[in-house]
Design a protein around this nucleic acid. Structure first.
Lengths: 210, 210
DNA sequence: TCCTGTGAAATACTTCACAGCT
DNA sequence: AGCTGTGAAGTATTTCACAGGA
């Protein structure tokens, strides 16, 4: 194993992981690439090829043992440990994320939340107290935070990201509608509904003129 | 023009569009693929190639006229008109989206909001009254809704999406953490922070063992 | 028989490199 | 001198198709 894995493959692994977790809940013990592919609208060959980058996990003639493949993917993706997260920006979006409750069960623990609005600082959000964004660096260091989530207005986003970079955080989930500039060893995943909608309209437009 | 445009290209166009809009606000009149690329961490050749699928928009020796290219992209992406949006699911996330205020300026008008929780139905959110999700089909037809945003719990999501499909909606922005099954003429864009975080951890993990 | 794992083939996408215009 | 537009070259990714094990 362990040559250079294509990035597209890494993007699909969590999809497999989630579906396998569902299958396990449904008490399915064995699944074929065929069946997994049907649930994800991905070709079976693609799934087999993707998995083959990491090893041989299946049984010929049967398929994959759900629990076992789940364990393998957990390890491959690094989900067999806890990840410590800092959230920057406690507006509606930030609160929605905290409230969502889908992060902790997957091992993502938001340990600290920050904002630049003096009226919010000191306020409690669940178990956490909103801190001044200026304390970001100190808290990241003290608590050993691994991942930053940026949910601040666009005008502040690059500054916050620069700060996270200087804190040696290497992974950022960015909700701000900007194109962040970061060093090449950083991983940034951008989530922007407007960009998503704009790709959708391209296709809608071409529907009416086929 | 108008062969078959690669999907990756369509995913980048909104990025160009947004950056050009910013450049226009900054009163920049001309931009080269070089400069645009620097802001987006995309190679100049890529940008030129992407644009070349749609026509010739630049001037040799100078670059691209910002306003003009912006107009072209607006037309290409179908952003020169209004799009009517229905939001299904008015939890924290749905409210955060409505409150965000970034959709309307880009021509995405949320005309109707739905929920299945009887306690929420009739409640006002901004200018809109939350409707029973059972009225989705009727409202979509009456108001000519083009796009659905799904922000319901995962257990309800596929049913909501099936409903949107049967309403002949062709584009969905899905926030529910599921892998929706839809007919092939549908466009679904999925936004899922957990999947995003799980791709990030893959890379973080490999950082400590280089 | 059914399904995996995988080279090889096919396809898709990116980058190069340069002719040609300003 | 500088930059676009673009075939051609180079990579990357997907799909095929089949040997081989259960």
């Amino acid at each position: 194993m362990a040559a250079l894995i294509p990035e597209v493959v890494i993007l699909r692994l969590p999809l497999y992981f989630r579906t396998l977790a569902l299958l396990k809940e449904e008490k399915t013990e064995i699944v074929s690439s065929q069946e997994l592919g049907a649930r994800l609208q991905i070709t079976p060959a693609q799934i087999r090829k993707d998995l083959s980058y990491f090893g041989k996990f299946g049984t010929q003639g049967k398929g994959y043992n759900v629990s076992q493949l789940l364990d393998e993917l957990r390890q491959i993706l690094g989900l067999d440990r806890k990840w410590l997260v800092a959230l920057v920006g406690v507006g509606r979006l930030g609160r929605a994320l905290l409230d969502y409750g889908g992060l902790a069960p997957q091992g993502f623990h938001v340990l600290a939340v920050f904002d630049s609005d003096p009226r919010k600082i000191g306020e409690k959000v669940g178990e956490l107290v909103i801190q001044d964004v200026h304390k970001l660096a100190a808290t990241v260091k003290n608590q050993g935070i691994n991942i930053g989530i940026v949910a601040v207005p666009p005008s502040e986003a690059q500054a916050v990201i620069d700060c996270l970079v200087s804190c040696r955080i290497k992974a950022i989930l960015n909700y701000a509608p900007i194109a962040p500039v970061v060093p090449s060893d950083m991983r940034v995943y951008n989530i922007d509904p407007v960009l998503a909608l704009q790709t959708l309209t391209y296709h809608l437009k071409s529907l009416n003129t086929p």
